[in-house]
């Protein structure tokens, strides 16, 4: 929506806008900048020279590589779980009306609104009660609780735009339920699945609060970075790893945004 006046914003509005962007992105720029800083002792300004050495150093460290590997595997598993459960939940809830539908919808969406610390404590208590040792699977389940929501939101938004008569037309022409899903529904929700999956992956990859409660002895990438706070000597390596995390999460979100642009809001992507 462009009103007549907004084509040319006034100077103070521009100042505010750029100020806001600077406030958000300057700290990130510092991390990117110092990932290439030649000096090892941290943040002296201006940077002392350009080097790619910290990348080599970071990737040579077993603990870094192990943490990255664990986080990738976790994000992949949480994404697969979220795609399955989110799609099924959306398929169950978008058409039929039944008793308690609103309550179930609410419960599905709640994890994205619930503070991570609550989810974390709740999960930990539940796992203890069930006598499950925290580890890889408990982290994955923890991540899936909020990853399901983004897939669900994306897919149900798409479902709502698919006319129910398309499914009927498919059946009318001889297709059974599976064929109708395969040839009519799946192609139309494919981009929503991709977008939801990428968001889920990004959410899982940099999650720390729920992870802290459910990780046991496992060290994911964000936990590794948190532990680095107490070791100032490794600051450049931490910067390199932070840069990696940024790329791993920002790129999927950008891609998801591009895929669903012009369709509907990616509800729940704001976590």
């Amino acid at each position: 929506m462009h009103s007549d006046q907004s084509d040319r914003a006034s100077w103070w509005l521009r100042l505010l806008a750029f100020g806001g962007i600077g406030f958000l992105f300057l700290p990130i720029a510092v991390i990117v900048l110092y990932a290439f800083n030649a000096e090892s002792s941290g943040y002296s300004f201006p940077p002392q020279g350009f080097t790619l050495g910290w990348f080599a150093a970071a990737f040579a460290r077993d603990d870094v590589m192990a943490a990255i590997g664990l986080s990738l595997r976790l994000a992949a598993l949480a994404t697969v779980l979220a795609l399955l459960l989110g799609t099924l939940a959306a398929a169950a809830l978008y058409r039929r009306d039944f008793l308690g539908k609103d309550a179930i919808t609410m419960m599905l969406i709640l994890p994205i609104a619930l503070p991570g610390i609550i989810t974390g404590i709740a999960l930990l208590s539940a796992f203890r009660l069930a006598d499950i040792t925290p580890g890889f699977w408990t982290i994955a389940i923890g991540h899936a609780t909020f990853c399901v929501v983004v897939v669900y939101n994306n897919v149900i938004a798409r479902f709502r735009r698919i006319s129910t008569s398309l499914l009927e037309a498919s059946q009318d022409l001889g297709a059974n339920m599976w064929q109708s899903f395969r040839y009519v529904i799946l192609p139309q929700i494919a981009t929503a699945l991709l977008a939801g999956g990428m968001l889920a992956f990004a959410l899982s990859f940099d999650e720390i609060i729920v992870t802290t409660f459910t990780a046991g002895n496992e060290v994911t990438l964000p936990i590794w970075m948190l532990n680095q706070l107490s070791r100032p000597r490794d600051v450049p390596i931490t910067n390199v790893v932070a840069l990696c995390v940024m790329l791993m999460t920002a790129l999927p979100i950008l891609a998801a945004y591009t895929l669903t642009r012009g369709t509907e809001d990616i509800a729940g992507s704001g976590k």
Partner: peptide, 11 residues
């Protein structure tokens, strides 16, 4: 039997 839908329901 086959149906022609009111909104055509083309894929």
């Amino acid at each position: 039997v086959n149906t022609v839908f009111q909104d055509y329901a083309l894929f």
